[in-house]
Each structure stands twice: as C-alpha cells, then as structure tokens.
C-alpha cells in the first residue's frame, strides 16, 4: 500500500487492504477527532469505495494479485474519487439490482445509492471509475484545503 500525498492511495486488490480507505478519506477531508459535518460524507464514500474495490478484486481481477489506485479531488460541493484498475472491462449497467432476497449481489446497488454520479471509462487498457459524492445540502461546503466547513444553516 502506498500513500502518494494525501490525494492518492494505491492498495493491493485484497479485502484487508480496503481498511486503508477510511483513514485515507479522513486525511483527504481533513477530518479530526471531533464530530465533523464531513464525517457522513466520509462514511458514504468509504462504504461505496470498499464495495467498489471488492468488486474490482473479485470480478475485475478474479482474485489475481494486483493493485487499485484511488485519486481524490475535493471541491466546493463535495468529493470525487477516481478508481483505476487494470482488470477486465465491465459495464455496471449490465447488472440489475436484486429484486428478491439473496445472500450476495448487493455491491453495485449500494454504490449506486451512495453516489451522486457513478460512471466508467476505458483508457489505456485500464478501467477508470468515477464516484461522485455531493456534500449534504445545507450542511457543508468544502474549503479549498479539503476541510468541509459547517455553514450552520446561515446564508
């Protein structure tokens, strides 16, 4: 696993490595230990990214040893994470949400519900996934330094 500054993270495509995602998001969003309006944004992003990285490991790489690169970009309205892998090409639109109780198959459904935008492009034999998370309306904006600020409901 490698931290390249606080905006980039490269992890092995393994379940245990996804545990590095939350501390990385905390650093990206400049979260401290105090309750923070960005913590919900970080929690949403964490779950979506863990689901996505597990999908890449299981289906994109089919369990082969490889790595996943995550690049974060914070702006005034939220967070965009680009996830890059060199696994097989996969169109998430080909998978429908489960319509009955089943044990597996909820990952994409969870990602779709947690992201405001979720799309994929294929570039240089790599999959580039873009996961967009808007900050909660009326609760936060994001300073240039990455710290989500609480507007406190004031104009």
């Amino acid at each position: 696993m490698t931290f390249h500054g606080r905006d980039e993270l490269i992890i092995p495509a393994t379940p245990v490595a996804t545990r590095l995602i939350r501390p990385w998001l905390n650093a990206v969003l400049d979260l401290g230990h105090e309750p923070d309006p960005a913590s919900d944004l970080a929690s949403r992003a964490e779950l979506a990214l863990v689901e996505h990285c597990n999908n890449v490991a299981l289906h994109g790489y089919a369990g082969e040893e490889s790595s996943i690169r995550l690049v974060a970009q914070v702006d005034d309205d939220g967070l965009t994470v680009t996830v890059i892998d060199s696994g097989v090409e996969f169109d998430p639109r080909s998978v429908a949400d489960p319509d009955e109780i089943q044990v597996h198959g909820y990952g994409l459904m969870i990602i779709r519900k947690l992201t405001d935008e979720f799309d994929m492009s294929r570039e240089n034999d790599s999959n580039q996934w873009r996961l967009r998370f808007n900050a909660p309306a009326g609760a936060a904006g994001v300073d240039c330094g990455g710290k989500v600020r609480n507007n406190g409901g004031n104009p």
Partner: peptide
C-alpha cells in the same frame, strides 16, 4: 462498519 460481505454472512 458493515459492508455487503458482512451483510451476506448475516443473511
């Protein structure tokens, strides 16, 4: 933290 894999164990 619970993800879909954890949920799958419970389901």
């Amino acid at each position: 933290f619970v993800d879909s894999a954890g949920l799958a164990a419970l389901v």
